[in-house]
């Protein structure tokens, strides 16, 4: 899949040294990814502030994310021109977002 090609380690291990290197990369990737997934789970149903491009700032309740981190489902989105009950935000439109735990 395209997702795999983008993430895939570039070299095939041909020696024990490179194999250990791949293993370290796998361990590192697992820990980082699990922590990120747990962050998204923690964010469920919480109010989140989004800083987006073009100086746009909005607030919404976080619902769910796809695993490729491309789209967020949110509800009660407070836009500059009113509230949209359900919405899909593009992660590429965002610079950062924040919430309290």
């Amino acid at each position: 899949s395209p997702r795999f090609i983008a993430l895939c380690p570039t070299s095939i291990p041909s020696s024990a040294g490179e194999g250990a290197c791949i293993e370290e990369e796998q361990r590192s990737r697992s820990e980082l990814r699990e922590r990120f997934l747990r962050t998204l789970i923690k964010m469920s149903n919480k109010p989140v502030n989004f800083d987006m491009y073009e100086g746009v700032q909005v607030r919404a309740k976080f619902g769910a994310s796809d695993i490729d981190v491309l789209n967020f489902q949110v509800s009660e989105l407070q836009t500059p021109i009113g509230v949209q009950k359900e919405a899909l935000l593009r992660c590429h439109d965002m610079i950062s977002f924040s919430f309290d735990v």
Partner: peptide, 24 residues
């Protein structure tokens, strides 16, 4: 589990993109 939850919501709620045109 996460993707299943997302897909189920997409089918059920069918939210619209905001903003309609990408900012970036």
């Amino acid at each position: 589990a996460m993707q299943l939850n997302f897909d189920r919501n997409q089918d059920r709620i069918q939210p619209k993109y905001w903003p309609v045109i990408p900012l970036k």
